[in-house]
Nucleic acid binder design. Structure first.
Lengths: 73, 73
DNA sequence: CTATTTTATACCTTTTAGGGTGTAATAATC
DNA sequence: GATTATTACACCCTAAAAGGTATAAAATAG
């Protein structure tokens, strides 16, 4: 399953880069701590608007991406 | 508000390019007709996994996108 | 090692998305 | 014009997301 979603890895990585805890990110993004957890844990059925709130913290948002152009590490 | 989300415009455009009705897309993607409607109508609180089901029909998925790199038409 | 911080898991309640159905409005076709 | 197909809107119900709290585990600091 690896990076089920690019978004999960992106959030995890960025958050740590900024030295934020899950709680700090949650507060800043205006979502619950539990949401950040679920998200970083790979929960796929999260709400799009909440994801966007979090991505906004990193100057990003959700968008359509070609499946071929996946993040190869 | 314009294209609140790239995803909305993307789905609308792609669906029409393929000459599919909302119902046809819904059936193929395995979601309800109502979901396609809500999505194309700009509903922000849709579920990420459902959005991915739809985007998969077009060889895409959700991913983080820089806000600067928005779709300029 | 111990103490502290951070993250993960579990239980519970409230809120709401999803989807079905029906109806209205709009667009397309004749 | 009328008829049909497609899309939009409203109502309801069920399933589940979100979030809080509490506890446990893991990671970090001392």
């Amino acid at each position: 399953m690896a990076s089920t979603n690019e978004i999960i890895r992106f959030v995890k990585t960025r958050r740590r880069q900024l030295g934020l805890t899950q709680k700090e990110l949650a507060d800043r993004a205006g979502v619950g701590l539990r949401f950040i957890r679920d998200l970083e844990q790979g929960k796929q059925s999260v709400r799009l608007d909440k994801v966007n709130q979090v991505l906004a913290m990193f100057g990003h948002r959700t968008g359509p991406v070609r499946v071929e152009d996946r993040d190869e590490l």
